[in-house]
Structure formats: structure tokens, C-alpha cells
Amino acid sequence: MTAIHQHDDLADTIPTSPAVIAQTFATPVARIARPYAEIINGQLAELVLAKADTTGNQYTYKTETLSDLMQWDNPTVEALSAWVLQIAKQFVQTLGRQQRPDLPDFEVVVGSSWASIYRTGDQHEAHFHPNTALTAIYYVQAPDACELDLIDPRAHVDYYDPGITIAGEGSRVRLRCRPGELLLFPGWVKHAVPEFTGDGLRISISWNLGYKIT
């Protein structure tokens, strides 16, 4: 019994230091306003609606143009797409060189691009964009904020649920963007558009982006 008491006394005298807690495996998301958006958004909205009326796809959850935005031969669309590619490259360079100082020269290229139109009651369930390095979404028009849910990308976080959450397991992050804002995030991130409840139209343009090593 004496030995046990001595051991307990020794444990009480061991100095402790503060623990270091790191939230690892963060998911990068960029959000940036387009300069002079108020000048181009009206033109973009008219163009998107015209394309949707002639060659668009009418789904039960939204209306979508064909994935041929880069062939629209419109200077406003071309200027916007060039800006998106510029911002996307800066995004990748900033983060990529933190992981790999010898990051090779590259260009960001468009795989496909389209516009989406949401009316009252429309929504898009959680999905991701296969074979895509980066997803880019530009918000053109909405009566209020454009909501987008980002889904927890960590696999199997809901495998064991003891009722206690310490890392936001299975949570959604809801972003509320304004028309004229661009979002960039990895293509493997699941995202969803919650039910659109506003009056009028919610219009956005999306790009699936990849890398070309130069």
C-alpha cells in the first residue's frame, strides 16, 4: 500500500504543459467580388435567359444551359471567363506553393461551363463535379443572397456517432453570396443549393477547371 501511495504522490508532482490542438485537413474556399459586376451582370442575365429558352435543359429542380459557355462567342462572357481563370491560377499558386515549393508552371483551363437558373421552389441536392480540379461559381442575379451549402468532405465521419461532436462531423457550411461574387473550391467538395424561396430568378455560371502543365 505504501508503494502505491508513493506512486500517486509522484504522479501529482509531474509538471504539465499546455496541449497543442491543431484543426488539420482544412478545405480551401476562395470568395472574391468581381470588379464592375453591376455593369456586366445585366448583360449576362439576358444572355443566359436567351440561351436557356432556345437550347437549355429543363430539369425538375432547375433550368440549365448546355455546357458550351466557352463557345458563346460573346465578349462579356469571354472577359468574365478570363478573369475567373486568372483568379483560379492565383488561388492555386498561393496554396500549391505552400505544399510544394517547386510547383511547376501551369495554366488553368476550362473543361466545361454552363449557367443555371433557379425559380421559386427549385433546389439542387448535394453533388460534386467529377474529373474537376476546381469548381468555380459566379453569381449573376438574385433578389437576395445566393445560398450554397458545402458538405463535410471527410469520408466516414458519420461511421460512429456517440452524440458528441468535436470536429463538426457531418456538418454543412452555408455560404450566402451576393450577385457579382465568385466562389472557388476543389472539385471533389460536395455542394448543394438549398430551396430557393425568393421572388424572381437566381442565375449563376459554373466552370469545371483543370490544370495544364506548361
Score class of each variant (00 low, 15 high):
T63L: 05
A3C: 02
S113F: 03
A52Y: 01
D102P: 01
K190Y: 12
Q58F: 10
S171R: 15
R178H: 10
T2C: 01
P130G: 08
A155F: 09
T65Q: 05
L80M: 10
K51S: 08
Q141I: 02
T65L: 06
R97T: 15
Q86F: 10
E181R: 03
E107L: 11
V92P: 00
H7G: 00
S81I: 01
Q71Y: 13
R172V: 11
F128R: 10
P179W: 09
N41H: 04
V193N: 07
Q93I: 15
D122Q: 06
Q99L: 14
L184Y: 03
K89M: 03
I117W: 02
I39E: 15
E46L: 13
R178F: 05
T13I: 14
T27M: 12
G111L: 13
E181C: 04
Q99V: 08
P162H: 09
P179Y: 07
A133N: 12
L85G: 03
L209H: 04
L69F: 13
I151A: 02
A142C: 14
I205D: 02
R154I: 09
L183F: 04
G210D: 15
E46R: 15
L49Q: 13
P101R: 09
T60N: 13
A30K: 05
D152T: 09
R31N: 05
V77F: 01
I164S: 10
A50D: 14
T165Q: 14
V84L: 06
S81L: 04
R97P: 00
E125H: 12
D8L: 15
E169Q: 15
P104K: 07
L10S: 12
W72D: 06
V140R: 04
V77P: 02
D53W: 02
T132C: 15
Q99Y: 06
Q23V: 08
S204F: 02
H124A: 14
R97H: 05
